[in-house]
Amino acid sequence: MTNDEILAFWFGTPDDPASRKPRQAWFTKNPAFDEEVRSDSSVVCWHRLEKRSLT
């Protein structure tokens, strides 16, 4: 997962009109979204970020 993919997940892509605006998913209980955040790729990404090896 790249920096751009992480930003796109949380904030949308630059060409998206809703980009960088609060998303309802952030404030609504949703087990599927919560699981996506906790997914293996997110955990791996977090560990890479901690080690400063994210590209």
Results as ranks from 00 to 15, higher is better:
T2C: 06
L54F: 02
K21Y: 11
V43H: 14
L49Q: 13
A18R: 13
M1C: 03
F11M: 09
R23W: 03
W46E: 15
E50K: 13
L7Y: 09
N30Q: 04
T55R: 14
D40T: 11
K51C: 07
V37L: 04
L7N: 11
P31S: 08
V37K: 12
D15G: 06
A32C: 04
G12E: 05
N3Y: 12
F27T: 09
W10D: 03
F9L: 02
I6L: 14
C45W: 15
E5S: 08
E35A: 11
N3R: 13
L54Q: 02
W46T: 15
K21G: 02
K51W: 09
S41Q: 05
E50I: 12
S42P: 05
A32M: 00
A32P: 01
W10P: 03
A32N: 10
D4I: 08
R20W: 14
S53A: 10
S39P: 05
F11T: 13
W46R: 10
A8F: 14
A8Y: 07
K21E: 07
S53K: 12
R38P: 10
W46K: 15
D4C: 07
V43S: 05
K21Q: 15
P14E: 00
E36Q: 10
T2K: 03
W46Y: 15
E35W: 04
E35S: 00
R23M: 11
R23P: 02
A18I: 05
R23H: 07
I6A: 01
A25I: 06
K29M: 10
P14C: 00
T55A: 09
S39L: 03
